[in-house]
Design a protein around this nucleic acid. Structure first.
Lengths: 208, 208
DNA sequence: TTGCGCTGTAAGTATGCACTTACTTGCAGG
DNA sequence: CCTGCAAGTAAGTGCATACTTACAGCGCAA
């Protein structure tokens, strides 16, 4: 998986720009806002430091631009199609998410941290980044609802949050506190669909 | 709600220490690791900068100590008792969590960001901080399982994550991306307990 | 060839910061 | 009063870093 949409799509083409954006993203992820020095970004992009300032004006502007174009390329394609059968779709979603975490284990927590720290970083840019991915996921749940496979008395965003939320919480627990919980994927799917009421209900499961 | 356990409990009593820890925590939250300068921390604590170094050795050590003692005082008491009836307990948990977010709206995302950014900050210290709170919450779910009110084929940590996870995801969505989703508390509880299978099941709900 | 736009090179500026050193002051206990 | 420890004061060191300035080279179009 790469990190930037493109390579020539979005109109911010040109070579040195792209190299700088990519290098900025990598370094931001590796070392944080402070640690991503302009000198090092330029070096990694194979470009002179002065060029960085000439093209983006400031470090802040460069990083903002980089974040607004960030998207794990290839992730979108792994999301389930809206017409996918419910359980198969959920499994795909779960696996895509876990693979994403594995592939960008180092980057994601740092990127998240920077987003939390510098609210200014999130503006500016097409919503085709992370928000686009979220939209796609929500679309899947909406379609499943329309087909009557999921309860219809909750907004699809809620359905999506209920599925992804515990995974994100796990992620945070690990990255922020160093506490790692094992994950049983089948049990996770079962728990999501069947709820938490009552004693163990083996055999009643719609899953295998 | 305050920020540090104490005031004289844990053995790290003394006045200047406590003032420094508190100031460090506040500034860390307000301005991040980099922005929390030793000079400013000392000033806010009403103490000379040199004293900071004499007592903690380095900025890093001070911040680590501060984080390890951090706990939103008063939050613990709001968590449901293990014997609380299931739905009432869940409601308490939900409200305590929402109140916590409201009370520390500015601090929490910054603290989280710093934890993600500086993994070194999390070590060292008694688990009476945030982890203690988590333990308490998990204890509630475990007790409910033992009483047969929750399914028993999932570890209680899983039950807790399934409840808190979507809330945390909401929180992140808001803080990191600026996307805020409304929350219907009753629907949330229902969704948690009953799962997502099937069309709308009004009337079947165990909740009013 | 001339001129223009873009990039590179070299050097430098200004600033902020963690951390240190050397000395003084205040206070508590014997 | 004397001693000793903890805190304050003042000044400074060394370093990293964002950003600037001045100048030179290169390719391309008219």
């Amino acid at each position: 998986m790469h990190l930037l949409a493109g390579p020539e799509g979005q109109g911010w083409g040109k070579d040195p720009d792209r190299g700088l954006l990519l290098a900025a993203l990598e370094l931001l992820a590796e070392r944080g806002y402070r640690g991503a020095t302009t000198k090092e970004i330029a070096r990694r992009a194979g470009v002179n430091e002065v060029t960085l300032f000439r093209r983006f004006g400031s470090k802040e502007a460069l990083l903002r631009a980089a974040l607004s174009h960030f998207i794990p390329v290839g992730f979108l394609e792994r999301l389930p199609a809206e017409e996918a059968p419910l359980e198969e779709g959920l499994r795909q979603l779960l696996e895509a998410y876990l693979d994403l975490l594995k592939a960008h284990q180092a980057l994601l927590p740092k990127l998240l941290a920077e987003l939390l720290r510098h609210p200014g970083l999130r503006g500016a840019g097409p919503p085709e980044g992370i928000l686009g991915v979220l939209e796609r996921a929500v679309g899947f749940f909406r379609a499943q609802q329309r087909r009557g496979l999921l309860r219809s008395d909750e907004p699809p965003e809620e359905m999506a949050l209920a599925f992804v939320g515990p995974l994100m919480a796990r992620f945070l627990l690990g990255e922020a506190l160093g506490v790692y919980l094992p994950l049983d994927q089948e049990a996770y799917l079962r728990g999501y669909l069947e709820g938490r009421y009552g004693a163990g209900r083996e055999g009643q499961s719609g899953l295998r």
